[in-house]
Design a protein around this nucleic acid. Structure first.
Lengths: 103, 103
DNA sequence: GAAATATATAACCAATCAGTTATATGTCAA
DNA sequence: TTGACATATAACTGATTGGTTATATATTTC
């Protein structure tokens, strides 16, 4: 619940999620896209796993990671509450025009 | 751009934003809702300001904070990319059914 | 102008973070 | 069964975080 926000606060972890949108990937495949070490990626993956954002299954001697986006829905719903603020009241001007044209 | 995700990764800062949805508030008013110190809140507000999520204007001897949600749109758009994953392919079963009933 | 009020900043601290290198674990191939 | 490969974990490190107390700054009130 809370861990999700921490998990997506790191740009590299968001990049991992973005990559997994293209389909399941092994650690090696993912690693190809970054220039930090393999243990660093392993730690990011653990954070994502513990936040419930990805799943892993062993496949031969490699592990295949998959997106598990349900928890992102929480985030989607939280930000959705703010939608009306960038629709209505487009920073004063919009509100003013709305007022003017109300009746 | 990037600071926004860090800013909303803290539950107290998300709470501040939620409070500001109800309308502009002074620091004292906001402080009433938390049980940490005034400087702690001041620091959270600074993070939110620097992330571009709130604005502040001096009003007498107090400061009135207001929501400035445009940057949250970035987040909304990022998570929106994942929407299709919790619609289509409802974890295997849905995909299977889709396959079955394809034609 | 002195005291009170509202907020921000400084200096500090313990905990967490994101990376590193070295090592352990498990699986495949020869 | 030995060696190579793929991944995870351990132990360490410097930077960042979220809080604290003490202090500075600005505004109002008396």
């Amino acid at each position: 619940m809370e861990a999700v926000y921490k998990a997506i606060s790191d740009p590299n972890r968001r990049a991992v999620l973005d990559l997994l949108m293209l389909g399941d990937q092994t650690v090696s495949e993912l690693l190809g896209h970054f220039n930090f070490s393999q243990p660093a990626l392993s730690k990011h993956l653990r954070v994502l796993r513990e936040a419930g954002l990805v799943t892993a299954r062993s496949d031969g001697r490699s592990r295949r990671y998959a997106l598990k986006p349900e928890r992102l829905r929480t985030v989607a719903e939280w930000v959705r509450h703010y939608e009306r603020f960038w629709n209505e009241r487009l920073d004063g001007l919009g509100a003013l025009l709305d007022e003017e044209t109300k009746p």
